[in-house]
Amino acid sequence: ILELRLVQATLFKNVLEAISDLFSKANFDFSGTGLELQAMDTSHVALVALLLRAEAFNHYLCDRDLSMGLNLADMAKAFRCANNDDIITIKAEEDWSDTVTFTFESPEDGEISIFDFDFVGTNGVPLEIPEFPESEYQAKVRMPSAKFMRICKKLSSFGDSGDRDTVVIISVDKECVNFFTRGKTGTSTIVCRQTQTVDKPKEPTLIEMKEQVSLAFDLRYMNSFSKGSTLSDQVTISLSSNLPAVFEYKIAETGYIRYYMLPRIEE
């Protein structure tokens, strides 16, 4: 049997908002450890991996590993009807008929909404996601997630919006990270310097650089990743010319959401 409860719908609402525009289906893996979610976009360019440890839930009972593919668009629609302070219950029975039940209960007026979701096939997930060695990454940038989102928005508004393939180049050089994009009639560069942690201890921008690195990514994807900002105050971007870049948001003490994307390759 699987039975989970969260007394505030916000966390799950935010998770769905952070993934549902880019990924149409996801694999949800429930085990004694917690919930592991994985999704790959249809063009196999981006992968998202989420971990919510059992401690993230107010009640967590899972006596048998259970893996289910779910349609994220349908789930996002259902969760938009949930209020932030609704109590969520997630249930699947032992003799489960390939469905999972999500219940939203309003603590104020006692109204209960029940959604049953059928399992669906997923795009080849779950996948084995190795922990890539730290030494393989040429640079790591940590910054406030709101700042990263703002940068993505600025670049998107300047970048040629008619072109789905607007490219952003992220370069790390000493104590600076530059975001560069080309618009119709010019270019735009946003420079972020490493900030002194004494000034704004809660909002540092930290840059760890082993060697200079300059990589190109699809801005459209990066923009979607930046929606992880509702889950964490900080984002860490790990850059390597040989490995997928990782955009990681730590979720309090209870997990993380990681987006993986390879840099563009010169042909």
Partner: peptide, 14 residues
């Protein structure tokens, strides 16, 4: 000209 790299070679099915 550049193209977006694909992830299959880094992540294998479980």
């Amino acid at each position: 000209k550049s193209s977006q790299g694909r992830l299959e070679s880094f992540f294998k099915p479980v």
